[in-house]
Write a protein that binds this DNA or RNA. Structure first.
Lengths: 145, 145
DNA sequence: TTAATAAAGGATAAAAAACTCTTTTTATTT
DNA sequence: AAATAAAAAGAGTTTTTTATCCTTTATTAA
């Protein structure tokens, strides 16, 4: 398994996809998103439903409805999505899974893992949801295939 | 969840624990290991059974039996354990879970994740199983509590 | 050679994660 | 108002991960 749960991977990809579409003015339905990022449709629906309930992504029902981001949401850091889906385990936990691992009672790899986690945290915090729209436009980066 | 599976966390802790004991001359039984690292006994037995089959850890049955490391095994990098248990997903996969993410067709965070993964890889490769025995002896680091 | 000890192996169970299907609600368009 | 489109919600199912239990096999020591 990767660093994040599969659910979280889908969430991140979907969010980038929606942001990209938002930038070109519209809303996107689940069918298109799931195709665009290569995820199971019904499962992604659940994930976005949850993000929507939390106010992270916006949604509209009915014809011409779909998912989108309002302006302030586009500036959100990716860490918000990760935290909503996977919790803060990636940022704060002990690499060896020790509950009480800390500065005072560190595991053998405490400091090294701390560095790595901080780097992940920094990356996710400084990356905003709407940040890759141009690259995606230009086909410089991909969310599928 | 953390960076590694729970199984892998138990495996790493157990391996450090056994190495520590090996250094002071003996073998350790499952009961003692699982107590020492705070893991379910039967489950850890399965994990070590697997590592033993792979030749990563040595074992002996009967009275005075238990798990231990021979000299060359003590020098093994921690990455061998992680790879045996969790596969190479931590080292090589795409952060967003894209199967075909690569230099040619990168995901938006490809390069950043590559850095992080390489750091994890380096850490696990340069850390040997027997490396922390002195710290553990001195109580400077902990595997439990 | 028997009793005790300890890992190996196999089968099963429980919990969590991943995923599906159906119905309901809300909004839009005609 | 009726038809339609789309997400929300609810109620599963399947798969994977985590965990337990019990029996067998190997080793040692008395």
């Amino acid at each position: 398994m990767g660093i994040f749960s599969k659910t979280c991977e889908y969430a991140m990809r979907a969010v980038f996809f929606i942001a990209h579409r938002t930038a070109s003015g519209g809303r996107v339905g689940i069918k298109e998103i799931s195709k665009g990022i290569g995820s199971p449709e019904a499962f992604l629906a659940k994930i976005l439903q949850d993000l929507s309930r939390r106010g992270i992504v916006q949604s509209a029902k009915g014809p011409n409805g779909g998912f989108y981001f309002d302006k302030s949401s586009l500036k959100r850091p990716l860490s918000d999505i990760v935290e909503a889906v996977d919790g803060d385990g990636v940022f704060v936990g002990c690499g060896l899974g020790l509950e009480y691992c800390s500065e005072i009672s560190p595991c053998p790899l405490h400091n090294q893992f701390k560095d790595i986690r901080n780097q992940i945290k920094d990356l996710l915090q400084k990356t905003s949801i709407g940040e890759f729209n141009e690259e995606l436009n230009l086909g410089l980066t991909a969310l599928r295939k």
